[in-house]
Design a protein around this nucleic acid. Sequence first.
DNA 1: AGACCAAAGTGGTCTGACCGATTTGGTCTG
DNA 2: CAGACCAAATCGGTCAGACCACTTTGGTCT
Lengths: 246, 246
Amino acid sequence: MSAVPSKVEEIVCTLRTEILSGQYRVGERLPSERDLASRFESNRGGIREVIKKLEQLGIIEVTPGGVRVRPVEEATLEVLGYLLELGEIQKPDLFAQVLDVLGAMFSLSVRSAIDRATDEDISEIATIIEGLIESITDDSVEKHHELWMTLTEKMIAVHQNLVLKLIGNGLRTRFMAGINSPDFEPVIDQEAVRQVLNDLKNAVEEKNSELAGRAIIRHFDLMKSGLVDFSEQSADTESQRRTGHA
Amino acid sequence: MSAVPSKVEEIVCTLRTEILSGQYRVGERLPSERDLASRFESNRGGIREVIKKLEQLGIIEVTPGGVRVRPVEEATLEVLGYLLELGEIQKPDLFAQVLDVLGAMFSLSVRSAIDRATDEDISEIATIIEGLIESITDDSVEKHHELWMTLTEKMIAVHQNLVLKLIGNGLRTRFMAGINSPDFEPVIDQEAVRQVLNDLKNAVEEKNSELAGRAIIRHFDLMKSGLVDFSEQSADTESQRRTGHA
DNA sequence: AGACCAAAGTGGTCTGACCGATTTGGTCTG
DNA sequence: CAGACCAAATCGGTCAGACCACTTTGGTCT
C-alpha cells in the first residue's frame, strides 16, 4: 500500500465511514455519481472506482437508477475492522463478539496445529508460549502482542488451514490494531492469564489438543470478562465527560 | 444484483478466475490497463473499475508502475467461494478446512444462542432440528439444506453476533452453493448423523450449551469423514477419466 | 387514488488528454 | 562483464466530456 493515499482512497474512506456510521438508512440512495464528483471536487470516473470498492465490501448495491445502502449484516467480513475503528459509535458488544469468535478460531487453530505438529514444531510452540508467560512478568504489553502474532503465524504454518488464515486476515489484524490503541486497557487478572498460558503450554507439550483448545477458550473468556469491566469503566468515563467532570 | 452482469462484472469474473487459478505468479504484474482494455474490447475506465474490485478482494496490489498479484493467503475471506468454484483446481483439502471452520462457527453459534434463548426460542430451534431428522428419513437433501439455513438464521437472530454473521456471509452461502451442486455427494453414515442430531436436539432442550456445541462438532466431523471417502472416490473417477475409461 | 407519460435523472460505457512515477533498454566506464 | 547512468517508453492517477438505456419523478387526467 502506498504511503500517500490516492484521492480515490480518501473518498472511499470518507463514504465508508458515513455509511457504516449510519448516516444513510438501509435502502436509501447515495447521492448520485455526479453529485459526489462535485462534492469531492473529483470526476465521475474516480467516483465510479470508489463505488466499485464499496460495492465489493458489500455495503452498497449498484443498479441503474441509483446506488443504495445495504444492511451491514449482509456485508463482507472486511467491514468489521472499519466498524471497530468507528470507536464510540460501534455496535454494542462488538468487541465481545470478536473475542468469542477469535477464541473459537484460536481453539481450532491450536487443535489443528497439535494434531499435525512434529516434535520440533511442538518445541517451538511451547517456547513461544513461555515467552508469552515471561512477557506478563515483564509487564510488556507490546511483546505480549508480538508473541501472539508469532504464535498465530507458527500455528498456521503447521496446520495450513487457508480458511482460518483468510478469516484471520479480516479479523486479527484490524482487531489487534484496535487493542493496541492506547485507549484500550482492559482489566485482566494477570495471574489467571499466566495460569491459563501455563496450562496451554503443558497441553501443547503433552500433545493434548482438547486440553489446549480449552485453555485457549479460557484465555479469551478472561479477556472478555476484562472487557466487560473495561466497558463499564469507559461507560462511566463517558458519562463523566458528558456532565463536564474530569 | 442485476440479472444480466455488466461488462465490468464479466471482466472481473474472468480475471479473478485467472488469478486464483494460478495463471499469474505471486508478485507478477498483470497486463497493463491499456492492454486489458484492448483484450476485452473495453475502455481504460472500465478496466480501472475491474481492478478496484480485485484490489478490494485482496488478490492484487495496485501501484504506479503496475498491478501485481498478491498471495491468495493474504486475500479476504470472500475469495474462498471463488476458490471453491474452481472445482478441480482447488487447493487440496480446502473443503475439509471449510468444514473444520464451519464446525467451530456453528458450535460457537449454538452455544451463544442457547445461552441467550428464551423458552420459545428453544422450542423453535428444537422444532427445526426435528425437521432435520425427518428430512434424513425422507431422504430429502434439499429440505435438509434448507433447514440448516433456517437453523442458522434462527440462531443468529437469537445471539446476534455480527462477527459470526459476517463470517457466515463469506463462508456459508458460497459453501452451501458448492455442496448443493449435483457433483457433490459425500458418503455419510446417515444413521450416525441422525443420532448426532438427536443428541443436539436433546442438548438444546436441556439448555446444555456445552453438549450442543460438541454435537455440532461431531456432526461436522461426520461430514468431513464422508468428504474424505468422497475425495477418494472422485480421485478414482478422475484417474479413470484420464486413461480414457468410462 | 390510480393510470399514464414526458422530462429529468440515474448508472453503464466510451474516447481522449495530461501528468507524475516507474520500468526498460541502450550506452559508457572500470 | 558488472554496474552506473540516463533518456525514452510505459505505467497508473486523474480529469473532462459525450452518448445511451434504464429508472425515477412530477404533472395531468380520469
